[in-house]
Nucleic acid binder design. Structure first.
Lengths: 112, 112
DNA sequence: CCAAATTACTTCTATTTTGTAGAACATCTA
DNA sequence: TAGATGTTCTACAAAATAGAAGTAATTTGG
C-alpha cells in the first residue's frame, strides 16, 4: 500500500469543503468556504488545480450549473463528492488518527 | 496566512512518528513505526528526505547517537520534536478539525 | 438602445515544494 | 570478508501555489 491511497493535505481540505457545501459548491464558493472556515488564504488557481486532480482520480464529479441571473454571468461548475471521495477522506483521517493515538504535545492537548 | 504555516500530509505522519518515539527515534525505527502503525509502506528515502526538510524548517532537531553494540554498527541519527514542530502539528490538525466539523460522509461515521 | 464598463467565474501557464524510490556508501560484529 | 544496520545521494513524479488571461453575463451612460 504505497502513497496513492492517501490524500494530500490540501486535497483533504478541498474535498471537505465540497462535502460541506452539499452539491452547491463551485470554485469561488469553495474557496470562500475554506478561507472563512480556516482563516487560510488560498489562490483561485490552487482550488481549481486541486478540484481537477480530484475529479480525474474519481473522488468527485462536476457539472455545469445554469447560468445565474446575477450580474457576472459565466456559468458555474458545480462539484460533489463521489463515494470514493468519502472513503478516501475517512481513510486519510483514520490513518492520521492512528498516528495521533496517545500522542501528547508538550504544553498542548492530549489527543484521545 | 498562506501555505507555509501548514504541514504536508507525510510531514505530519513523520513528525507524529518522531514524537511517538520520544527522542529514541532514528531513520529506520521511524520508518518501522509508521509501517506498523498504519500499514503503509514507505521507502527509506522518503523518510530521510522528509526528516531533513522538517529539521531545516526548525520543526525538529537531530544528534548523533552512540554507535550501538549490536551487529551492524553505523551510528544512529536521533530525532526529537522542537516546540515549533508540536505547534505546527496542532495547528495542522486543528485546521482539519475545523473543516471536518459537522461533516457527514454517506454510509460513514459522523465526525463531531 | 447599444457599446463600454463592471462583475463573477473558469482556464491556462509557470514554478516551487512535497513525496517517492532505490542504489550507493559507511561502519560495526561475527 | 561477509553480513547486518544505518544513512546519504541521485533522480524524478506528484501536489501545491500564484496570478494573469480568457469568457460570459449584467448594468449603465450617452
Amino acid at each position: 500500500m504505497s502513497k496513492g491511497t492517501f490524500l494530500g493535505e490540501f486535497e483533504q481540505v478541498v474535498l471537505l469543503a465540497v462535502q460541506r457545501m452539499d452539491s452547491q459548491g463551485y470554485g469561488m464558493s469553495i474557496r470562500r468556504e475554506i478561507e472563512h472556515r480556516t482563516g487560510r488564504g488560498v489562490s483561485i488557481g490552487a482550488i481549481y488545480a486541486t478540484l481537477e486532480r480530484l475529479e480525474k482520480k474519481g473522488f468527485l464529479k462536476s457539472w455545469e450549473g445554469d447560468s445565474t441571473p446575477v450580474r457576472g454571468g459565466r456559468s458555474r461548475r458545480h462539484f460533489a463528492l463521489r463515494p470514493e471521495g468519502g472513503e478516501a477522506l475517512v481513510r486519510s483521517q483514520g490513518m492520521l488518527d492512528q498516528m495521533w493515538d496517545g500522542v501528547e504535545i508538550a504544553g498542548g492537548p492530549e489527543v484521545q
